[in-house]
Computed example of a mutant assay.
Amino acid sequence: MDLFAGPGGLDIAATIMGVESIGVEWDDPTRATRTAAGLRTTREKDVAELGPCDPEVADANVLTGGPPCQSFSVAGNREGHQALEDVKRLATRLGGHEDAVTFEAAWKEVKAETDAMSDDRTGLVLQPLRWIMEAKLKREKPYDVIVLEQVPTVLPVWKHYVGILRATGYAADAHVMNAEQFGVPQTRRRAVLIARYAPADEEKTVAFPSPTHQRYRPGAERLPEVQEPEEGRPGEDRQEALFTSTSTDRPIIRWTAMQDVLRDRPADFEVVSNYGSGGDPKKRGRRTSEEPAATVTGKVRRNRVFRLQRTAAGTKQIGEELDRLTLREAGLLQSFPAAYPWRSTDVAQQIGNAIPPRLSLHILSCALGFGEPEEKLLTRLEEWQPPGAGEPSGSA
């Protein structure tokens, strides 16, 4: 059961794994993409109008979701910080209930308060917690596994949810994950919560996927092939490396570069960000084709692409401007299959809002207890074709 499902970053990974899924998505163009990809979507578009007891979704035993993040994307300022604190305060009121009656009363109070907020998206982050509590108290069948993901600024909320879930019978934890460390040709950081229903588990912790690829750092050279796992570094890097891992002795593969997936491009090129610079060209991000892409957003089509030419001295300099990234290429940088059937006119936004399917494969495989995804699953993701692809005209 995928809440706020988007174009299917989690659902397509589940499909590749052979796990049946259904998503809730309110945006019609995004729903069209999901339909073209053969992904099931609920008839009701609004997460708030559904619940775990509804017949269409009542059999689901796994809950995933990435609620809207705009309220927290500026968490460093007063409004963003206040939104985080509001969610944590209201979430506390939803935890600790032993029966459906007291929970329902608490939810009505919380909903009334969120409805009165100036930004109604703040309350959407509480919807997964409502679904979790209703599954246990009203459906009387808790979700076996829960996966929530969002931008890193939401990590304090997920950490707060971890405490509530542990008190509800779940083993749970939350950490920031780096997409390029799992073979995605893009640097993208996501705050991920994984929980598994385990009321008898005293430790209440869960394993997180082990990185399979090199961590990208500006100015760092790409590994020639593989290296032994990093021990962790002081500060933030070490803190992120300390989460419980499924493996500790597997060599690390070099990061996946843009040139590895954008094979129709010249071997050497540079992508120059055309936004987020405050008007100062010197602050525009630059990545060469030997590096992962910067985070793909809904404005990815604004990026400019230039050929890199090697000089007589062996250095590289910017040459002619090339065509900008296509939507298909933007999807590839997100690790969507090349044949993904994007629909409608807002495709760039659909792509930018999605969680990379390759990262989803690692998260879901670990959360469901399968360990690291087998190479054949990763290959299946790359080679995936939409339903009916290659069939004769007129086929069902």
Rank of each mutant, 00 (worst) to 15 (best):
V347G: 03
G66P: 07
G394R: 09
K111Q: 12
R302Q: 12
A172S: 11
L223H: 00
P251Y: 01
E383R: 09
P266N: 11
K141S: 15
D99S: 02
L333Q: 02
I355P: 04
V296N: 00
P292L: 07
E382A: 14
P229V: 01
D264N: 13
E113L: 07
L10E: 06
P218C: 09
R196W: 10
R139A: 13
V19H: 06
G95H: 09
Y197D: 03
A339M: 06
Q385H: 14
D27G: 01
K141P: 15
Q334P: 12
P373S: 01
A60G: 09
A36Y: 07
G96P: 08
T311K: 11
K138A: 14
K376H: 08
P357R: 06
K138N: 14
L223D: 00
P211I: 00
T205D: 14
A112V: 08
G8H: 03
K136L: 09
D99K: 05
W384R: 13
M258Y: 10
Q82C: 06
L364N: 12
D268Y: 05
T114D: 04
Q309P: 08
R31C: 02
C366H: 09
C53W: 11
A241K: 03
R188L: 05
T326G: 08
L333G: 04
L148G: 08
I16S: 02
F243G: 02
T315N: 07
T248N: 05
Y340G: 13
R307D: 02
G232D: 13
D115R: 11
R188D: 05
A294Y: 02
L90A: 07
A83E: 15
A112D: 14
E221Y: 04
S210T: 02
V125L: 10
I164Q: 13
I194F: 11
E375P: 12
G285S: 05
I363Q: 00
G285P: 08
D27M: 00
E375F: 01
I194Q: 09
A83V: 10
M17G: 07
E134P: 05
D346R: 02
T297H: 07
L165W: 12
D264R: 12
C69V: 02
G169L: 10
P373V: 02
Q239A: 15
L361K: 10
R324G: 12
L10W: 06
E85L: 12
V151L: 06
D119P: 14
L262Y: 12
V272T: 14
R265M: 07
D249N: 07
F103R: 04
T33P: 06
E240I: 08
R130W: 06
L155E: 00
E109L: 08
D86Q: 09
S245W: 11
V347L: 00
Q186G: 09
I146V: 06
T15I: 10
R89G: 08
P387Y: 05
E180F: 01
R139M: 11
Q186I: 10
S277N: 09
V87P: 08
T256V: 03
E180C: 01
G23F: 06
L242Q: 11
